[in-house]
Design a protein around this nucleic acid. Structure first.
Lengths: 223, 223
DNA sequence: TAGGTTAACGTAATATATACGCTAAGTTTA
DNA sequence: TAAACTTAGCGTATATATTACGTTAACCTA
């Protein structure tokens, strides 16, 4: 039994204005579900790892390389409308919103949509977004996820807002600050925010080398 | 481009005598890699969810239902020897060793093998076992994994040995005991071990209802 | 200058994790 | 039958993380 295999991509970004995680949706040009908003992707048409296919599709769609790409899982389409056997592999990716925005004249075809206000998506795309989000939440406990979605230099407040959006919980700013200060890979800069209408905050940045060192000593016990 | 899709199954069990996690390997009957030890599985030949396919293959292989089945991930075979396009989806499962042991006359075809002493496996099966193990370790932090692999009634010592095998670290028996006592879903019984050549231990069992209640209040914060 | 807003520092209480001493209750062996 | 051995099981002290919340400082706007 033979299958066509599609890759579906959940591309996350973080909107600093709205303090919201967003997902890139495109309007489908072909049937089925023609004209509806759905996840970008396409059929696997090269002999290569699925991750490579996903990265290629994303580059074609956005024109830039995503900075983080992980598989969510594979899905069998149990109800294929055509006689065609279909399977799909979902990937989630991170893309700094500053690096890609749909062209103004293309907002009808590609758009960032708030995770909290997703429309109903065709096929199992809704499920895939939820699964990907869950995976992203887990990944962020072990990996430097936020730094892919924030500008290189950022105030602690922005980092906190990001976590609040990711986990959908309010965080205490004093405890959050304390926690971050304990992370050796987030380093303070001798710079402050510009052009804000309140006391400007000190800026911080991610230190890759310090992270690598830290990662190795983070071996959790079973309980 | 069309693909054949295989499911590969990593079936874990726990050997109480050896204090070792084990994986079920079968001897391949067909080429490629004919005669070598490899993961059980087979091609997807029905229009159904991959998990259903995996469960079915496992039932055929072992004659029993596994108690836990989760997808690891999908893999593209980047180097298919035949012109055939191949993809595979790996699943890991848990099976109490007491419920299934290869028949004595079939040990040449199916065998439990210690995780710590796996032979070199063909294709990417070695990688898949490692990935599955990692996933199992993660799952055990959030789900009642050990209780699928231990007898219904067990002494705390056996539970500790299981965790030591899963994470490959020694644990302090006093602290471990304290930790378990804090888990509302592991309940003490009014029974003790039989036939051991030392002081018999009190027996414990998993309480499903208590676990469900506990699970809901276990909402971890971001940090 | 007053009021609003966020930054930034701090303290106390609680919970969790880690290290390790010790006694108890069985079995085995001499 | 007593001594030696093995694992069960209890407890205490210390360090580390988490949580709650009070307070002042710095900058903006009106």
């Amino acid at each position: 039994m033979l299958f066509k295999i599609a890759v579906d991509c959940i591309i996350f970004t973080y909107d600093q204005q709205a303090h919201q995680l967003q997902v890139l949706l495109i309007r489908r040009e072909n049937a089925p579900a023609q004209g509806e908003w759905a996840l970008p992707g396409g059929f696997v048409d090269q002999l290569e790892d699925f991750a490579v296919t996903a990265a290629r599709k994303l580059r074609q769609e956005t024109g830039v390389d995503v900075s983080y790409l992980e598989q969510v899982q594979a899905y069998a389409l149990t109800d294929p409308t055509a006689g065609q056997r279909l399977a799909s592999v979902a990937y989630y990716a991170l893309l700094d919103v500053a690096h890609y925005a749909p062209a103004a004249d293309r907002t009808h075809y590609a758009q960032w949509v708030d995770l909290a206000q997703l429309p109903v998506l065709p096929f199992d795309h809704g499920q895939k977004v939820q699964d990907a989000w869950r995976r992203l939440q887990e990944a962020a406990r072990h990996r430097p996820v936020p730094f892919h979605l924030l500008p290189r230099k950022f105030p602690l407040n922005h980092l906190q807002k990001f976590y609040e959006a990711l986990y959908q919980v309010p965080l205490d700013n004093r405890n959050f600050r304390k926690w971050v200060k304990g992370l050796p890979y987030v380093e303070a800069l001798a710079e402050v925010e510009q052009g804000v209408s309140h006391r400007p905050s000190q800026l911080y940045q991610f230190n890759t080398a310090a992270y690598s060192a830290y990662e190795q000593i983070t071996q959790r016990t079973p309980y």
